[in-house]
Design a protein around this nucleic acid. Sequence first.
RNA 1: GGACGGGUAGCUCAGUCGGUAGAGCAUCGGACUUUUAAUCCGGUGGCCGCGGGUUCGAGCCCCGCCCCGUUCACCA
Length: 507
Amino acid sequence: MPGQHPEQEDMVKGGEAELRRHRLAKMERFRERGDDPYKYLYERTHTIQEARSAFEDLEARTAQEELQPLPASLAGRIVARRIQGKSTFMDIRDECGRIQVFLGQKQVGETAYEASKDLDIGDFIGVKGGIKRTHRNEITLFAEEYGLLSKSLRAAAEKYHGLSDVETRYRRRYLDLVANPEVMDIFRKRIRMIDAMRGWLLNHGFLEVETPMLHPIPGGATARPFITHHNTYDADFYLRVAPELYLKKLLVGGFEKVFEINRCFRNEGVDTRHNPEFTTMELYEAYQDYRGLMDETEDMLTHVIETVVGSRQFTYQECELSVERPWKRLTLFEAIRQYAGIDLEATRDRDEAARLAMSAGVEITPDVGYGKIVDEVMSLKVQPHLIQPTFLYDYPIELSPLAKKKRGNDALTERFQPFIACLEVGNAFSELNDPIDQRQRFEAQAALREAGDDEAQYLDEDFLTALEVGMPPAAGLGIGIDRLAMLITDSPSIRDVILFPQLRPGD
RNA sequence: GGACGGGUAGCUCAGUCGGUAGAGCAUCGGACUUUUAAUCCGGUGGCCGCGGGUUCGAGCCCCGCCCCGUUCACCA
């Protein structure tokens, strides 16, 4: 492979290796001219975007015949070059803009012009000169002097079709960002989305905290964990599947409103909606229940979407969506009655529930329990209908070992989930703070685990001890940041909103 | 894990019936002082994903494997 043993490539002609040799030679020539091909700094007067608007302002308030070139020093990467003998046009690009540069032999001098032939697409340069329009009306920086800031040794992607090979785009995202400027817009949107959410949280009195990534016992979600090892302690740790239990310990400690935006890791399947590591926002609020939190969730998500997309209406994969409040709210069982046409709430009997589910066309295997049946019907028969923002609430207790029982109904928990465009974007509940109840729930999970369910949650004595010290009544919410980013950026795959998505190692 | 689609030059892609591997862009050399997918002339560039097999002969057919995508399964 090129780069590993460049000295062995000397015999190779053409292709990438030869291109790299040419560029190394050009780099050497800069050195021979006493010009460091890798500078330490460059003082620019404007970003490209700033320079453009400064020039347009100037044009707007100056009479045509009095218009003078706007002096500027700009820096960027050469993305295109059109050489015509003694004059050269280049397009340079920085993070937010692109501008044409004119390099004339007469203007920069014969020596400097000659040296410019050793520039390549991909090089970073700094250019000082005046901005004016060409005869073809293109805003252009006319160079008085220029300098190489950083030499590129490898070829860029094709200039017209860009880079479209999905694997290369994901594995070498920097090439994707260079070749496809719209990709950067997606990630800027994701960043603004997180900023907007953090802003909302801080405005509402939440404190941002950080809790461990390495857990001695994985907890807070039903999921298979990654295992790692600590050498000094000679102990195994699990990459966290959720920060939930630690955040609740902070409520025990006296924090009242906390949140964390950070990574979780789940050792499970990979597809368009799942990446092994993903980002969640989890918040916990003392003296609040799931009803109040539903209102807050609606407020927060609406605020975030409105801030980033600039409207309460937006499109996701051909789907017209509106986050206009209030959002639809249905209990899970109402939704099942409505969309699956069966009443699973009427029975608590596993076999009866299985029979009903089958009658609605949902395949049920003998090993799944009541909770799982409800879950199955929900995801197959209900979720595909939840296009406009909808809250489902009141989930069976079997599915929610960390949620408080519903007042007046021991079979249910006070839990809700927001759905948008059929995507589950969050999960929330009145937090279970009764240590006796919590112990029983853990024991039920442990029994499932004994029975072979390797996703059932572990009994966490440490957490139970904390609850026994006393946790205030509270509500908690988790939001899948990546999925929300998919919605906001109209991306069909989670990999499009993760800078470096996880692929099989190799190449 | 199953099904389907894909992997050919640095990039984007063609490749007929099994008969000497192609184009555009990029790159290199030449011409060119207002181009913007610059133009014109000439050149370099290939482990056709990897390994077997069939055949006089395989990019193409057969078998196995690897990687990517979609989807189903699994799963928050």
